[in-house]
Amino acid sequence: MNKPFDMELFLAGALTGSHATRQRHLRQATFVQVEIANRWQRETPWAWKRKHLAWFLEHRLDRHSRMTRYYYFLTVQLLVRRLQKNMGV
């Protein structure tokens, strides 16, 4: 049996800011993960490609307010930064 991916552990070293900000990033990153997993069956961020994140930002959030899209964009930037740090880029 596979354990579910722990987004909190994945982002632990990259999260900064107030408690509320860290919780928002975790909540939004988990939502991004679930949506990409439902659409493309890619369970972990290491399996994602740029097109998956672009789809999420462009199509999944298209009916949300500009501020909501902005906050999700910040979370996606955090995810990308974390992935680059892990790859040594």
Rank of each mutant, 00 (worst) to 15 (best):
D62C: 15
H64V: 06
D6T: 05
L57C: 01
R82G: 09
K51Y: 12
W48I: 02
L79G: 11
F73E: 08
R24M: 07
Q84N: 15
T30E: 08
V89I: 14
R24F: 07
W46I: 08
T21N: 07
S18A: 13
Y72F: 15
R42A: 10
W40A: 14
A37Q: 13
V80I: 11
L83N: 10
N86G: 11
R27N: 05
K51A: 14
K49L: 08
H59A: 00
Q84F: 13
G13S: 12
K3M: 03
R50H: 10
H52D: 15
Y72G: 05
K85F: 03
E58Y: 00
Y70F: 13
H52W: 01
P45R: 05
D6G: 08
L79T: 08
H52C: 04
E58T: 09
D6V: 03
P45Y: 07
R63S: 11
E58M: 08
Y71G: 00
G13H: 08
F56H: 01
W40S: 04
R82P: 08
W40C: 11
K51G: 07
H59C: 00
V76Q: 04
L15K: 05
V34Q: 13
M67W: 10
R39Q: 06
T44S: 11
R63P: 00
A37W: 12
F31P: 01
R69N: 06
M87G: 13
P4C: 00
N38A: 11
T21W: 03
Q23F: 07
R42L: 15
F56C: 01
W55M: 03
G13W: 05
V32S: 06
T68F: 05
M7C: 04
Q84D: 15
H64R: 09
N2V: 10
L11A: 09
G88K: 11
A14W: 00
F10R: 09
F31R: 09
L26R: 13
S18F: 08
N2G: 06
W40R: 10
R39N: 02
H25F: 14
Y71Q: 13
R24D: 09
R66I: 02
K3F: 06
L61Q: 05
V32P: 07
E8I: 00
T21M: 04
K49C: 09
F73A: 08
G17H: 05
L74Y: 11
P4D: 06
S65I: 00
L83H: 12
M67G: 12
R82K: 15
L26P: 08
K49G: 14
A29H: 03
V89D: 13
E8H: 06
G17E: 10
G13E: 14
A47R: 05
E35D: 02
A47G: 10
